[in-house]
């Protein structure tokens, strides 16, 4: 089976133990509200290797989005620290791409102009970045829609533009906050497969937040299971299914066992409306 590729990237061989890219130590967040302090996230320890795909799964209020925002440098931690490539994270970094549940496209810009927006902000817009944008749009299947406006695209296509916008500036890390949560089941499945293919080929580390257990297990090298009140990491599960992942693997006993394992951690009287 040949994996589709982006650029000249080769599918990542996960033989040698890769280096650490993100290191989270005792990271926590307490919000101070009028009614008193609320612990959104209790001290998290996590070491993520380069090229790893990590899913964060848990019900609302488990602090998974809070954790993602702190790793993104968008939210300051109240305890502990996180590093990216050995440097403390205390502000956003251009090595990190962030994707939201909605595509967050600018409706007055064409697909191509949206994808090139970060390059304008960085002051790096050039023929090279235009070429890169075209390559990436090709990879997400939107080459023919470069001059279309967002409102002419379906929800799934808009999220692909959003993905292309992020990939064009070649981040080392992709942070995704329920990126396909608003899409229908079929589109989401297709997007998930594409996402894995593209990030694997480019060797991008992915932190993927979801409340869908099946999706979390299917995508990840490791699933970080989180529980609420207070938000904390309740378990980390290794997913030792071969890559590239296929839909058929979802029928395997290993897969079913992993789902039960995640459910087991989430369970125990918690109202896990996942």
């Amino acid at each position: 089976m040949m994996a589709a590729r982006i650029d000249n990237g080769t599918p990542l061989e996960r033989a040698a133990p890769a280096e650490t890219i993100i290191d989270v130590k005792g990271l926590g967040k307490t919000f101070t509200l009028d009614s008193g302090p609320v612990i959104a996230l209790e001290s998290v320890d996590l070491t993520i290797r380069k090229g790893e795909f990590i899913s964060f799964v848990g019900p609302s209020g488990c602090g998974k989005s809070t954790l993602l925002n702190m790793v993104a440098g968008l939210l300051p931690a109240t305890e502990g620290a996180a590093t990216l490539n050995g440097r403390a994270i205390n502000e956003p970094s251009r090595q990190v791409g962030f994707m939201f549940q909605t595509a967050v496209l600018l409706p007055w810009r064409t697909v191509e102009e949206n994808v090139l927006m970060p390059a304008e902000v960085f002051g790096t817009k050039s023929e090279a970045t235009r070429q890169k944008a075209r390559t990436v749009l090709e990879a997400v299947g939107l080459r023919d829609f470069m001059n279309a406006y967002p409102r002419q695209l379906s929800g799934g296509m808009q999220q692909r533009v959003s993905l292309a916008r992020t990939l064009t500036y070649e981040p080392d890390v992709l942070l995704m906050d329920e990126p396909f949560g608003a899409l229908d089941e079929f589109t989401r499945e297709a997007m998930n497969l594409e996402l894995m293919r593209i990030t694997q080929a480019a060797g991008i580390t992915v932190l993927f937040v979801t409340h869908n257990i099946t999706e979390a297990v299917f995508m990840a090298d490791r699933v970080v299971v989180m529980t609420p009140r207070p938000g904390k990491v309740s378990g980390v599960i290794d997913v030792e299914l071969p890559r590239p992942r296929t839909i058929d693997q979802m029928q395997s006993q290993t897969f079913t066992d992993l789902i039960f394992k995640v459910r087991g951690i989430l369970g125990h009287g918690q109202d896990s409306h996942a």
Binding site: A72, L74, P92, R94, T102, V104
Partner: peptide, 10 residues
């Protein structure tokens, strides 16, 4: 989210 996107790319 649009503000956040802009912040994320500094």
């Amino acid at each position: 989210d649009a503000r956040k996107l802009m912040r994320s790319i500094k």
